[in-house]
Design a protein around this nucleic acid. Structure first.
Lengths: 175, 175
DNA sequence: TGCACCTAGTAGACATATCTGCTAGGTGCA
DNA sequence: TGCACCTAGCAGATATGTCTACTAGGTGCA
């Protein structure tokens, strides 16, 4: 499962609780992966039974205990193995393109509404990605690790811009 | 479920068997949706029980009977309703970007191998999309229906090109 | 005082997706 | 004759993903 590899990757950066992971899935890695809370916890417990992660309970004052998950040596090995393994099959699935494909029966104006909604979403995304990448771009020359994290944001920015250009074309040419 | 809407959309273009649908999911609509055989058949039977499609058994000589699924009026209404409804949430999930994000522990050369594999995949995809779109582009001015189908291909082409440009940048700048 | 929201995690139902293998015949080829 | 592959569809197991709701306390605000 890719989710377990992604979680392993996050634990390799820092030990985390399920709660921490959920926050990251909703923010910093949201542009390439997302996950449901329940599934994060289930996957974490599987990583533990597989010996790829270990739990350290950290007591807190006034807050619930943290079940910190630390990656093990076996976990690091599994992560590296995944990183260099054959590419995961990537099935494109875009509900918006599906609508466009079948939108021939709609009125022209209805199609333009779909397009306008997509534009709004793309612009919003672009803004978020730029806000996230700004601090990185202003900093000093990055390490390879930093560069790669930034590159995934930059990938999102490049595609958001491409989407906007495509939308321009559709708005201009739609018969 | 989006799959049922996509299948409904295909049945609106022409009556089809599960087998026909599977072929189309593997070819002409593959750039924005894919589906497993078993699930196509299950979804088809649900469309029938929901009154959105009807089965017409067509006898063939030397081949198994075709269970042709025809869209009903209720099906067309459901399709239109979906087309103009609120956008489906689109969660980006790209296993390749996930690898790149966590690839900081790899050697530089290993990262470049990942990048090269991605380039190959992007070039292959671009070639396929161009091959599919060529006959459309050479034809006469398209109807809106034709234009929209072509536009989904063009969307894929635009993004494949964007991906290649991004890969150029990574290969050039990777520390 | 009550309400909304935060931290941290658990439980279970349900929805969707994928994989494997089966039936049953037809065609092409070496 | 045997093998590979095509058409057409069915059955069932397993894997993944999503949704709702619950426990249990803490903080901030009006």
């Amino acid at each position: 499962m890719i989710l377990s590899s992604v979680i392993l990757g996050m634990l390799a950066i820092a030990p985390m609780t399920g709660y921490d992971l959920k926050k990251r899935f909703d923010t910093s890695v949201n542009h390439f992966w997302s996950a449901d809370k329940a599934q994060i916890y289930r996957t974490l417990s599987r990583l533990v039974t597989d010996g790829l992660a270990e739990v350290v309970t950290v007591r807190q004052i006034g807050l619930p205990d943290r079940q910190e998950h630390h990656i093990t040596d076996a976990g690091r090995a599994a992560l590296t193995e995944w990183l260099v393994s054959a590419p995961d099959p990537h099935r494109e699935r875009d509900p918006f393109l599906a609508r466009i494909f079948f939108a021939g029966t709609l009125e022209r104006q209805q199609v333009l509404t779909l397009v306008a909604e997509r534009r709004q979403a793309a612009e919003l995304l672009l803004g978020e990605l730029r806000a996230q990448s700004a601090p990185v771009e202003e900093g000093p020359a990055p390490t390879r690790e930093q560069y790669l994290r930034f590159a995934t944001l930059d990938n999102g920015i490049t595609h958001a811009q491409a989407e906007l250009r495509w939308l321009d074309g559709v708005e201009k040419d739609l018969p």
